[in-house]
Design a protein around this nucleic acid. Structure first.
Lengths: 195, 195, 195, 195
DNA sequence: AGTTAAACGAGACGGTACGTCTCGTCTTCGT
DNA sequence: ACGAAGACGAGACGTACCGTCTCGTTTAACT
């Protein structure tokens, strides 16, 4: 039996405006210049409408992440049968994006959000697409014998993502070539499916 | 030839009190509850004395990092001739520390600091000791033939560190066993020095 | 037609607390130790609530003046038909008040406020009651023939007030007798209503 | 001839620079934007040099007053035998000066200084020249029979000065004509020396 | 169609912290 | 010994947001 009561219902327009404003401001201003007041202003919404539905700005960002409002992620990692090549081709544009001001700013902001809000961290992996896309491709590689059967595919995906984040945090610019070489090393020695 | 001018000189006592307060408060309260006013209060110092010497709270944290005020880091990664065992023995207490509330809080705070301040990120690696300790041990392993000659030892150290950080950010608790297994996988297949 | 908008309305309690604190602190501490922070603290109010409604501490003092929060002014200058006697009787307690620490402090504070804020000066005259009380009595004296028909009654009131202020500023103590004698001289030679 | 001395002695140059800076800044910026730091900066002097010789900024202003650094006062009130005319001629330029921005600012600043510093008030009268110049002329008028023998000449001077100050504080602009008329009224009915 | 109660925009409120300014005291050099 | 320079602890400045709390208006489900 459903609870029911009279009165208006949650405004979809307000929700959309708030999340859109959050995403825009997070990218443009960064995590710590992202404020509830700013979001309310930008969304043309009362502050209370935000506090009514989200407990914190971290929760707003987490919802933006789930909505995929940040990365127009490459939907798949192609499978041409050559794992190293496929990864290289998927990673290259990602690395270049992360070297752009927008990319760096976005990663910094999302990581900052994650440090203050466990809920954001939990979705970081999905947000970057690493969990499904990367792991799927690695799993296929295991099936094809390109990786040993005991390869921890899920963890490997996270390792690549963690490395990516660490590079953004600690360096001015990621050296794309070196990064690709490292990933290749991490995957271990090349095997043929016949191997 | 040094620039010199008359007048009083920077107070070492104030510097020490400020950095000590910063380190204490960052661990106890976390990055975004760390405030200049709080530091000044805790250090018994005027706010201006902080602003005179440091441009931001990130810079304060960066200096604490360089001073090694956060981790009483294990001074070396032992070298028994067995890289995997040595790493396991070094990593185990580190992982347990990172699973403790203090450890998690510290990593979260430092990463948060790094996202807002390029200078902090640049020192994250040193702070965790990964740069020197880990890389040194890996380099020795290359010399001993435990790792192939082309192993990118510096990047490998950062990869482990990045993975560590990512796990803290995205999970409630690091699975120590799984983490060690992953590291072992990343190092590639075991080789004998005779190999 | 009045402008109206939705939303909360100005808090009368806050206004009262702020003005009361302002009046108390001005008398107790003096103009330049009167601070917005002190008022906010004393009134149990956020600073922004003060800044929202008053542009400066001078404006606060001006509003206190208009509210008559400083002098429990003698409501009238009595009219017994003898102008000189009536003035003497009204002025005597006023002069004694101005010789008291509270009185001196208050005049000093109000004058200081007036120098920094035109709005305060404009109300000084009303605040001391000189404008209405004194001028009314003088006007009656003109009607009764005690003063010549061309006597500038409003200006005369201000002259007495100006003199009063000047004495407080420039002397340690007003000589009551000399002051009364001077006022009497300024009014000009005694006239009978029969002229 | 060069300054030479063994062992430094109070620097006349510093004193001069400090007082000059004080006078300049008081006129230009007003009492409450006059700061010790600003004076030191402007005078090219260490703050301590100021604190060593003067206890407060009020004392600095008082010394400037005594030095006559503010008004290039009309050196005398002329005596043509006609008190009212002489006063009118002396007061007219004074009133116009007080209506100028510089004049108003100066009076406001000096009065503000006087409210915070008894020592300044004590010299206000001399500073405006009222004490000597005005009183002298009034005394002469008594001698000439233009004023009654019991006229309180010193107090009359202060009364005019107090009125002047009050007008500056409480009005946007002094009405010169009305002011002169008032002064004339205060002096009492015209008398001839033969009278 | 009218009633009714929650969601809405707006924004006032008591607070905390910001980064800057000046206070008056205190070193430290150089003359 | 004095003067310039300026670091220091202290604390107010005016601004920005916090999260909570009214307000009046709008709107949708239930009479």
């Amino acid at each position: 039996m459903t609870e029911h009561r009279s009165g208006p219902v949650r405004s979809a327009a307000a929700r959309e405006a708030i999340l859109a404003a959050t995403a825009r401001l997070l990218v443009d201003e960064g995590w710590d210049r992202l404020t509830i007041e700013g979001i309310a202003r930008d969304a043309g919404v009362g502050k209370q409408t935000i506090y009514r539905w989200w407990p914190s700005k971290g929760a707003l960002v987490a919802e933006c992440l789930l909505d995929g409002r940040f990365f127009p992620v490459e939907p798949v990692v192609r499978d041409t049968g050559d794992l190293r090549r496929d990864l290289r081709e998927w990673l290259t544009p990602v690395l270049h994006f992360l070297n752009s001001p927008t990319g760096r700013s976005l990663v910094n902001s999302l990581v900052a959000a994650a440090t203050g809000e466990a809920g954001v961290g939990a979705h970081l992996s999905e947000a970057f697409g690493a969990d499904r896309l990367l792991a799927d491709r690695l799993r296929a590689a295991v099936g094809a014998g390109e990786l040993p059967p005991d390869a921890p595919v899920d963890e490997l995906g996270n390792a690549v993502l963690g490395l990516l984040i660490f590079e953004v945090l600690s360096k001015d610019e990621i050296d794309v070539t070196a990064f690709l070489r490292l990933v290749e090393y991490l995957l271990g020695p090349r095997r043929t499916s016949a191997g």
